Amino acid sequence: MDRQITDQTLRALRRILRATDQGGRKLASATGLTPSQLMVLQQIERHDALTPSAVASRLKFGQATVTNIVDRLEKAGLATRQRGERDKRQIHLHLTEAGRAVLDSAPDLLQERFREGFEGLPSWEQAMILAALERLGHLLDADTIDAAPLIDAGVIDRAVD
């Protein structure tokens, strides 16, 4: 019985990973962005003039990951950096018109569908799912891995797929 449950759990995990990958591919073909890049753009849109460290904190991404993503967004003309008026040491992020257009044309993110469905669950079930996923992350030694996928940090080249 234990082996059967293990196999079913691995199958469910593979389905989740495939759904995530398919969602990322759909997003990339529609917008040219990765899921993490889109999430950063969404944060900038929701909270104009955020600092990169605030984005990292809100998304639970590493600071270096956000810096890399913002570099790419800025190079693509989707976001800009501006020094703070009061404190020149602070950098504030702003969305460009091109960034707004990309957000308007982006397909529904898997994360958004998850959030809507998950928030509709009773709190006890949310807590149970969270505990199970945290335990699974621990079993896979993923406790300290940055929440942004490696592909968004430029570590994995999607062209090699």
Rank of each mutant, 00 (worst) to 15 (best):
E112V: 03
I44R: 02
K60G: 07
V102L: 13
L59E: 01
P107M: 04
G120H: 11
S36A: 15
L109D: 06
T51R: 15
R72D: 11
P107T: 02
L139K: 13
A64V: 04
L121H: 09
L59A: 00
D161T: 05
Q22W: 03
A56P: 02
L38W: 04
S36Y: 01
A147D: 14
P52D: 06
R14W: 10
R3C: 00
A147S: 15
V40Y: 04
D161Y: 03
D7V: 06
L130W: 13
L136N: 11
W124Y: 11
D161P: 00
D7H: 10
S29Q: 10
A127V: 01
M39K: 12
A148T: 00
D157F: 03
T80P: 01
S123H: 13
R115E: 11
R86E: 09
T6L: 15
P122N: 14
R100S: 01
R100M: 05
T31L: 02
I16E: 08
D108N: 11
Q43E: 15
A76P: 00
Q22Y: 09
I145M: 07
R11Q: 13
V102P: 01
G84K: 07
L33M: 04
I129V: 10
A28K: 09
G24H: 02
R100N: 05
I5A: 15
T96L: 09
H94W: 12
D104L: 06
A101M: 08
I151Q: 07
Q4S: 14
F114W: 12
P107V: 05
Q126A: 03
A19V: 06
L27K: 02
I91R: 08
G23A: 03
Q126L: 05
Q22M: 10
E97V: 04
I44D: 08
R113M: 01
E45R: 11
L133A: 13
R11G: 05
Q8N: 09
G99Q: 01
A101D: 11
L121F: 10
H92A: 04
I44S: 02
L93R: 09
A106E: 07
K88C: 05
S53L: 13
P107D: 04
T31Y: 01
A148H: 00
I129S: 11
T51D: 06
E116V: 06
F61G: 01
R135F: 14
L50E: 08
E112A: 12
Q8T: 04
K88M: 07
T6V: 09
Q43K: 09
R83T: 03
K75Q: 15
R83Q: 12
G23K: 00
S57V: 07
E125F: 10
I5P: 01
F114G: 02
E85D: 14
T80Q: 13
L150W: 12
L103C: 02
D108W: 07
I69N: 03
Q63Y: 12
N68K: 15
R100Y: 08
A142F: 14
L41F: 03
V155G: 12
A54E: 12
Q90N: 12
P149H: 11
G23N: 05
W124P: 08
D2I: 12
R14L: 15
G120D: 14
L136H: 12
L110D: 05
H138K: 14
R58N: 13
L38K: 02
D104Q: 13
F114E: 03
A159M: 00
K60A: 15
L140T: 06
T9Q: 14
G154K: 00
L50H: 07
A54H: 12
